[in-house]
Amino acid sequence: MTYKMVVFDWDGTILDSTGAITRAIQHACLDAGLPDPGEEIASYVIGLGLSDALRHAAPGASEAQIALLIESYRKHYLSKDHELELFSGAIPLLKQLNAMGVICTVATGKSRQGLNRAMANSDTARYFMGSRCADECHSKPHPQMILELMEEFGIDAAHVVMIGDTTHDLNMANAAGVHALSVQTGAHPPKLLNQVPHLQSFRSINELAPWLIQTISAQS
């Protein structure tokens, strides 16, 4: 099995955004007159499509309240997103994978507009050949994002690995029949990540990178 494509999650994996998203969800709930879901629940839903995430964070909210939550969330998050930074080691890893001819892609709970904005802010679009967003596909953990990326590039499951920071990512990978790796840099703690089968878990991208590069090099 040679990895020809790496599918990255975005928030909490490439971009250090978990705290900002969590706070935006909490503020949005308060703005809508709903209870603060608390940090644990607000962070747990990261990675899902925005409307699905907010429905989980605010169970029982009406459709009108969900619309208000979405508007308020975007106001809070977009006021800070330009200040967010990539995780250490993200760019060197992407550059090395590109140089090795590995296809780098993104599967994210962000909207297309949100991902485009995030890539523009971080000047990272050049490193990715493809992407799928939550407003184009079923929300994670449905496998549609990965399956569409595999079809787009003509790569079968044996040659794909997913990297993410949540159980939503790992469950999506399992549903798509591809390998998965986790990084402990985002929304879900190691104890939760380890409840979902995957190859290995790493504390950071800097820890993951040599393992992934060595594995791909050994397979070549």
Rank of each mutant, 00 (worst) to 15 (best):
I163F: 01
N116T: 12
V102P: 04
L94A: 07
H82A: 11
G154I: 02
C137R: 12
L170P: 00
V106Y: 08
L208V: 08
Q184L: 14
N194Q: 14
I163H: 07
A180V: 01
S139P: 01
F153Y: 15
G154H: 04
L84G: 04
P92R: 00
G89S: 02
P210Q: 07
G154Y: 11
D123S: 14
D169A: 04
A158E: 13
K80R: 13
K80N: 09
Q184I: 10
S111E: 02
R112C: 08
Y127G: 02
Q219K: 13
I216Y: 08
T166H: 00
P189I: 12
A175R: 14
H138W: 10
F87A: 03
L192G: 06
W211L: 11
V161S: 11
T108G: 08
T105H: 04
L199T: 13
R112D: 11
T167C: 13
L97D: 01
R203I: 12
E152S: 15
A209M: 06
E148R: 12
L208I: 01
P197M: 05
I91G: 03
R203W: 09
G164C: 05
V183M: 11
V106T: 08
L97E: 05
K191R: 14
P197E: 12
I163E: 01
I163D: 03
T215V: 11
Q144H: 08
H159N: 15
H198G: 05
D81Q: 12
M119H: 12
K80Y: 11
V106M: 10
G130S: 14
L147R: 09
M145G: 04
N121E: 06
D169V: 00
T167G: 13
M119P: 00
